[in-house]
Amino acid sequence: MADPTYQRLTRMRVRQQFAIATAARVSLWLGSDHLLHVELSGFTETYKRFYFRDIQAITVQETTRRAVWNIVLLVPIVICLIGILMNVPPNAHWTAVIVWSIFASIFLLPFAVNNLRGTACTCQLRTAVQTEDLASLSRVRQTRKVLEKIRPLIEAAQGRLTAEEASARMQEAASGVAVSWKPDPPPPTAPPILT
C-alpha cells in the first residue's frame, strides 16, 4: 500500500485568475507512487491521483499571461507616476506625492512578483482516460523544477524514451492511425420521385 505522507510540489493556487473569492484552489503533491492533485473548494478537498505507471504525457505550453498582467498593472503605475511627477517641485505637494507613491506601490508589488516568477505557462497531464489541467503549475521555471523531480520517478515506473525514440514511435503511431482510419460511408440517397 502507498505511503500516506505527501511532499508539497506547488503552493495553493486559484484555478481562475479573476474569481479569487469563489474559485477552487488547487495544489500538487508528491506521493510514493503517484502525484496527488488537491482541489479545495469551500471546505471540501477533492483528490485526484495520477500513478507514475499511468502517466502518458505532460504538456507545457508557454502563454502570454505574464505580458497581459504587465499591461494591466503598468497602466495604473504610469498614472501614479504622472501623479507623482505633477506634484514634485516647483509645485511641491508632498502629501499628494506620498499618496501617489502609496498607490504606485500597491501596483508595483504584484508587477515585480509577476516578473520575478518568470514566463507563464499552462500544464496538462495525460493518462489513458483523461487529460487534466494542472492549474497549480503556472510558471515555466516552477514547472521545470517539478518535472525534474517527477521525471525520474515516472521513468523508474515505466522506462525511458529519448527524443529520437519518442519522435519515431509517434510517427509510427500516426501511420497506424492513418491506416486504420476509414471515411464514413456516404448517406443513402433517396430514390427519385417519379411522377
Binding site: 505507471r53 499511468d54 502517466i55 502518458q56 504525457a57 505532460i58 504538456t59 507545457v60 505550453q61 508557454e62 495525460r126 493518462t127 489513458a128 515555466v140 518535472l147 521525471r151 515516472i154 521513468e155 515505466q158 522506462g159 525511458r160 524514451l161 529519448t162 527524443a163 519518442a166 519522435s167 514511435r169 509517434m170 503511431a173
Partner: peptide, 26 residues
C-alpha cells in the same frame, strides 16, 4: 517537440511547447 530539454515551437502555430512523453503512451 518531444522530450526536449527546452521549449520547442509547435510546427503549426509556433507556440513554445515542452512535451514529455512516456512509454505508457504507446
Amino acid at each position: 517537440v518531444f522530450n526536449r530539454p527546452d521549449m520547442a515551437p509547435c510546427p503549426s502555430c509556433g507556440t513554445p511547447l515542452q512535451i514529455e512523453v512516456f512509454p505508457a503512451l504507446f
